[in-house]
Write a protein that binds this DNA or RNA. Sequence first.
DNA 1: CATAATTTGTTGAACATTCATTCAATATGG
DNA 2: CCATATTGAATGAATGTTCAACAAATTATG
Lengths: 237, 237
Amino acid sequence: MLETITRMKTADALDNAPETTRKGDAEKRGRKASKEVRQLQLIEATIDSLAKRGYAETTMADVADGAGLSRGIVNFHFESKEKLLIATLQHMYDEYSAHWRTALQKAGDDPARQLQYLVWADFDRSICNKRKLAAWLAFWGEAKSRPTYQALSSSRDNYYQQVFIDLCATLKGRGSYAYDPQVMALALSAMLEGLWLRLMMGTEDTTRETALQAANEFLSVAFPKHYPLKGAATTKS
Amino acid sequence: MLETITRMKTADALDNAPETTRKGDAEKRGRKASKEVRQLQLIEATIDSLAKRGYAETTMADVADGAGLSRGIVNFHFESKEKLLIATLQHMYDEYSAHWRTALQKAGDDPARQLQYLVWADFDRSICNKRKLAAWLAFWGEAKSRPTYQALSSSRDNYYQQVFIDLCATLKGRGSYAYDPQVMALALSAMLEGLWLRLMMGTEDTTRETALQAANEFLSVAFPKHYPLKGAATTKS
DNA sequence: CATAATTTGTTGAACATTCATTCAATATGG
DNA sequence: CCATATTGAATGAATGTTCAACAAATTATG
């Protein structure tokens, strides 16, 4: 049952993206393709463009070309460029949310296990790959100056943060730690985001593997009575 | 001697920027103004624009207007928009570098003190304010897709990271800790960047004060024999 | 069932706008 | 006067949006 979460190869840093899968979806090109499929296809092309060219250089033409469709098509399915970008951001947000919620469910009842699963989820390949990280960063760069993006651009929302706080509080009770749960949760989630940031920027010394090591190191020093988790390898399952 | 570093008011989250000081510099407007002064003036206006409008919406006209000068002026002092942006990034990079190096010097010989000073430096008002953080984020968002930015856009470079690793190694020797210095240094610096990120994005629960608390909490759990530092308050000096 | 009518999806050229860049004219300071 | 700095209008390229024409799918009709 742990496949989706623990399936992390120690191999290389960040895979370049599941290019193949996306090509597969787009194969239904010819004429038909339900409205939803076509919209998804355009959203994927938008993520591609954001990742490859950055926010400022992402154009409607590039998105259309990337999807193998004509110029005017984007304005037909999404009303404007802005709405396309919002839809793309929403898509990524939903995917991220669903992913960590699933991970949390799979962890069972043990809080230490839940926290470990959340950390693992953050570095899962399906979420944490060059393409999507680059797209996230592109949005983050514009979020402060665009009110419309702000709510969605955190990916980790208030509820997510609250889960971390609750877990820190519970562990504190069970391990008689001294920290303030809210403060510790902030440190922890900030570190996770910071590791993402390094992966996004392609910092040399940071790979998905070393990032996960660092995160686990944090868990070990913050909650020494609970980590390393029994029967859980650091990098691979 | 600690003024620059420890001068942090507990008061409010992030000040909106030292707007006044910059206005003062720009006062030498009329006609004259040495080449360097004018370039600095334009760079500051660029930071303003990046912070207010984001990278994608920053235009030459906006920069010129912000500096109170005419349209063509930027192409005279900097050859192109791209070169203006690179100069701006370089300026911010140099400022950040100089700042943490100074902090390190002021800390003296004790490694625990040095690390604490580096952390404090990161949240010093002169470096860590809304305006500059927003500008950093704007650059980060474009860095991956622009080779020219990559070297400068980290702000925290390889050398900075090495300092962290060395400090972690030294503290390990003196405190008989169990961690791997490289991994711990990554966790620590990632958390600092992650806290910056939260400040940049304006996440509600994160202020410069709570960020500093979280960072200090990290130091305490990672190096329990060294922190909290004797005689150093968490938030204010 | 075949064919017409209609709705829906798609195209690509035309249009309008924004913006970086250029440059001739002008002002300034030495 | 000369070198340098500054202006602001003109230019041209890039790009988001619109839309009339076209094609495919769906529905209506005999």
